[in-house]
Each structure stands twice: as structure tokens, then as C-alpha cells.
Design a protein around this nucleic acid. Structure first.
Length: 263
DNA sequence: ATGGTTGCTTAGCAA
């Protein structure tokens, strides 16, 4: 099974690229973030014609997440499903081919110390609670998305400069690590050790041609899936050309060993 | 300490 995640930064602007990318990569599942579209505005017909079912949690102007799949999306759940009255559409999950898939758009956090920063840290804490209440670390589960946090120094072009910002601040890294401590592994790091592999580059300052990026888009997997990770790649070609998203897709290839039950 | 760019919505916000 080929499982991918991509912050498209407006699904309507990116639709031609999205359709080309689906055709070229043929993923079984694609998690999308930053739709910047309501469910009504989402190009559902075009995506269906490309052969994908859609689970949607849209919002006007900002945020919005989705899961596209070749095959049935079951038990769809929207939001963090806790007590807080949160209008921001940042999480959706569904079961696909026996795998629980979550598409998450973690808050950026604005400036360290700001109200948005505290919302980001709280949101990650709430995500951990959501995992604890809704799922089990021994089930096949993939938590995918734009986490707006680079886990380690090797995931950042200039760690010293970035550690004072929301994307690589020690507190943000600790909050993400606490989510992973529930029972998740960074699937990309099962396949690659080297530094300098990024998934996001600022639109400004020629960040992409200079490869001044960060690896903030991730696929986290539970133990049953960790055993069957065959490959992980960042499609940095997708960041090139006219009207790219500022994020590149991340693609994980899984064999179906998790589906094999002992006799 | 700003600025640089993109997208949504229409001058300002969010990233």
C-alpha cells in the first residue's frame, strides 16, 4: 500500500497539480492539509473521476483536511473530539483497508510566546489525548500530516537559527515527541539517516533553490506498520515549476504484512 | 528587526 501526505496550500489552486500527481504516483491513500476550502468548495467530482473516494473536513478560508483513497473509507471521524469548542478543521481520520489513517494539520504557532503558540502546544497535547481515547498503539495506524515541527537538528537547514522559532523550538519538539511517545515511529527515519532532506521551503528568499528548508511533514506509524515500511520518499520535484505548494508530498510504501494473521 | 512570497478575500491575515 502506498500512503502519502501533502500540504497543498489551497486545493482549488493546486487542483491541476493534484490530479497530475495522483496520476503519476497512484497512491492508495493521500492525506491532504490546508485545503482552504469548505466541503462544498472541494473539487470532489474531479477527484472521484481520478478514482478516489473522499473523506472531508473542510473550512472556509483556512485549514481544512481530507483523506483520498482508492477503496472504501470507513468510520470517518472529524476533529479532536474533546470538550473544547474548536472551530478549526485540522484533523480527520478513517479506516482504509484495515489501516487507521489520520490526516493532521498542526497549528503553525505564529510567534513563540503568542496566543497561537500556546494553541499549537495545547493542540498537540489534545492530539495525544485523542490517540489515547480513540485508538490503540498495537493496531495498524498511520498519523500523517503537516506537523509544523521539525523533530531533530538534521531536519533543519540551520538549527541554531530555527530553534528560536515555532517550527523548531525545544518546546514544540517536546510536544511532538510526547505525541510520538504514545507508540509511534517516524517512518521516514526508518529509511533515511541523512541530514538535508526537507519537506517545506518558504516561498520567500529563494529558500527552495538554496535548499533552506525543514522536514515538518511526517508519517508516524504504530508497531504493526513499522514492521512493513519498505520505502519513504519526499517528492521534491513537486516543489518545482509554476504554482507549487510550499510543501512537497511525502510517500510511504508499506507491504501488507500487518494484514497477515498468525494461524 | 524587517523583509521576502503566496492564497483567500478584498486590506488584512495567515503561513
Amino acid at each position: 500500500m502506498k500512503l502519502a501526505t501533502w500540504n497543498v496550500n489551497s486545493v482549488r489552486t493546486r487542483l491541476p497539480r493534484l490530479l497530475r500527481w495522483l496520476d503519476a504516483w497512484q497512491p492508495d491513500v493521500l492525506c491532504l492539509q490546508e485545503l482552504k476550502a469548505t466541503n462544498e468548495n472541494f473539487p470532489t467530482e474531479a477527484v472521484r473521476e481520478a478514482g478516489y473516494q473522499v473523506a472531508l473536513h473542510g473550512q472556509k478560508t483556512y485549514n481544512g483536511v481530507a483523506i483520498l483513497a482508492r477503496g472504501k473509507l470507513e468510520d470517518v471521524r472529524c476533529g479532536l473530539q474533546d470538550d473544547s469548542d474548536d472551530a478549526q478543521a485540522r484533523l480527520i481520520s478513517a479506516r482504509v483497508r484495515g489501516v487507521r489513517v489520520l490526516s493532521a494539520y498542526v497549528p503553525n504557532g505564529g510567534q513563540v510566546g503568542s496566543e497561537k503558540w500556546h494553541y499549537k502546544l495545547t493542540w498537540l497535547q489534545r492530539l495525544r489525548r485523542h490517540l489515547e481515547r480513540g485508538f490503540r498503539p498495537d493496531e495498524p495506524l498511520a498519523l500523517c500530516g503537516d506537523f509544523n515541527v521539525a523533530p531533530q537538528a538534521r531536519d533543519v537547514c540551520d538549527p541554531t537559527a530555527w530553534e528560536t522559532t515555532v517550527l523548531f523550538h525545544p518546546e514544540a519538539r517536546a510536544a511532538l515527541a510526547h505525541v510520538a511517545d504514545w507508540g509511534l515511529t517516524d517512518a521516514f527515519r526508518l529509511c533515511h539517516d541523512e541530514a538535508g532532506l526537507y519537506s517545506w521551503w518558504d516561498y520567500r528568499m529563494l529558500a527552495f533553490p538554496k535548499n533552506q528548508g525543514l522536514r515538518i511533514d511526517h508519517v508516524f506509524v504504530t508497531a504493526p506498520l513499522e514492521r512493513c515500511c519498505d520505502a519513504a520518499v519526499i517528492d521534491r520535484e513537486e516543489r518545482k515549476g509554476k504554482q507549487p505548494s510550499d510543501h512537497a508530498p511525502v510517500v510511504l510504501t508499506l507491504n501488507d504484512a500487518h494484514a497477515v494473521r498468525p494461524a
